[in-house]
């Protein structure tokens, strides 16, 4: 399969994000938001047929549900997954979610709850939702549409919704194991597998420099050795993405819907 020449940054990001589920075993894959959801579907339809997905409501499906599909076109269910069972899956550890935090810090702690003082927030966001349980029970990856110091904050996140590698918050100072997969942004792919769980840049999207990523991040980054370039999608991947997102919701996620290859 040949590498495509015409693709958007969103499509490149979807392909990079799909990699989160490679070799992760037979787990419930939950992509929250359009790009992570397309990415999970792409993983399932290419290299990870073993992953389980839901229709976004209460059923497991073997065919990923395209974004915005009317109820009448939904695939028939292979299993039942009401919220009670989602929690059972979370607590068992057999789940890998990809989420979009509002803030993330050097300890991989993440916030979707509120900005400012949690007791009287300047801005009320979503609340901690399932982040505390997800982050202590199973692997989580992240998708960040706008890589900036507002998201990757200098200090600690305002509200610790997802736990991370900091030691200050654990009983007896003894950290609990935390499993971060990959962090895919509009600039690069990162993980937290540097020395002492330092954030590390695994690959830069075409045309992006390490300096640009570092300047957009509130904490120090380490380049992976070697640090690659995020691979371009191939035609098969692009056609699956189109099938999973026939109405082109992916064009509205990254500001300006830029091309995948930056103009020189």
């Amino acid at each position: 399969m040949t590498t495509a020449q015409n693709f958007t940054l969103a499509e490149l990001v979807i392909c990079a994000a799909a990699e989160a589920w490679r070799d992760g075993g037979e787990v419930l894959a939950t992509g929250i938001g359009p790009l992570p959801r397309i990415a999970a579907g792409l993983a399932k339809l290419t290299f990870a047929p073993e992953i389980l997905m839901t229709d976004g409501e209460a059923y497991l499906v073997e065919e990923p549900v395209p974004l915005g599909a009317p109820r009448s076109e939904r695939p028939s269910p292979s299993g039942w997954m009401p919220y009670r069972r989602v929690f059972s899956s979370v607590w068992s550890g057999r789940r890998h979610a990809m989420v979009t935090p509002v803030q993330m810090d050097r300890w991989a702690q993440a916030n979707i709850s509120a900005l400012g003082d949690p007791m009287k927030p300047k801005v009320q966001l979503l609340g901690v939702r399932g982040f505390p349980g997800n982050s202590i029970c199973h692997r989580n990856s992240m998708f960040i549409p706008h890589h900036s110091k507002r998201t990757f904050v200098e200090g600690e996140v305002d509200v610790v919704a997802a736990v991370g590698f900091g030691t200050g918050r654990w009983p007896g100072g003894k950290p609990h194991p935390v499993d971060i997969g990959i962090v895919v942004t509009n600039l690069c792919v990162m993980d937290f597998n540097g020395p002492d769980h330092a954030a590390r840049v695994l690959s830069l999207h075409p045309g992006v420099t390490f300096e640009e990523v570092q300047d957009s991040t509130g904490f120090p980054l380490i380049p992976a050795d070697p640090m690659g370039i995020t691979p371009a999608p191939n035609d098969e991947q692009l056609s699956i993405i189109q099938r999973l997102d026939p109405k082109g919701v992916r064009a509205k996620v990254i500001k300006g819907n830029p091309p995948g290859l930056r103009a020189a």
């Binding site: 349980g133 610790v160 918050r169 654990w170």
Partner: peptide, 26 residues
């Protein structure tokens, strides 16, 4: 999920249910 456990404990007339969920978070 903690809300599930809190309600389950009440329904079983238990004082609490043990969990890892919530530890290390705000």
């Amino acid at each position: 999920g903690l809300l599930v456990l809190g309600l389950e404990a009440a329904g079983q007339h238990l004082p609490f249910l043990p969990t890892r969920v919530g530890i290390g978070s705000d």
